[in-house]
């Protein structure tokens, strides 16, 4: 994998996560819609088993909603890149 392809792929991902994510549809997704229609949405609204640091793709402490989403997108893009590349490196080295 040449460096140019990796950088181009990362740049495209970053543009999607930072500049397009604030414009994503806020409507409920398929499962949420079904849960709402069939009356079991409330089951998922209790305390989560683990309190995540950036809930609902909104960076805490960032006032404007679009910016909070964009910041969460940037963080997630870098984290998933590093995590997947790290996992791949480890998997490759394992005998």
């Amino acid at each position: 994998m040449d460096r140019r392809t990796v950088l181009a792929g990362l740049a495209v991902s970053m543009v999607l996560a930072v500049f397009l994510s604030p414009f994503a549809s806020p409507r409920p997704d398929g499962l949420e819609r079904v849960a709402e229609d069939k009356g079991f949405l409330h089951r998922g609204e209790g305390e989560p088993a683990l309190a995540a640091p950036v809930p609902d793709y909104a960076m805490p402490g960032v006032g404007r909603e679009g910016l909070a989403t964009a910041a969460a997108g940037a963080l997630g893009t870098l984290l998933t890149f590093a995590a997947a590349a790290g996992v791949a490196a480890i998997a490759k080295r394992r005998p």
């Binding site: 994998m1 792929g9 495209v12 397009l20 997630g76 893009t77 998933t80 590349a85 791949a88």
Partner: peptide
């Protein structure tokens, strides 16, 4: 690194909800 790029791209693309019929995305 291709694994990393693929994960980053899919993470980013998963943030982009598109509307479908019936008030759903």
């Amino acid at each position: 690194p291709l694994m990393g790029v693929m994960a980053a791209f899919i993470f980013a693309a998963q943030m982009l909800n598109f509307p479908v019929a019936g008030g759903t995305s």
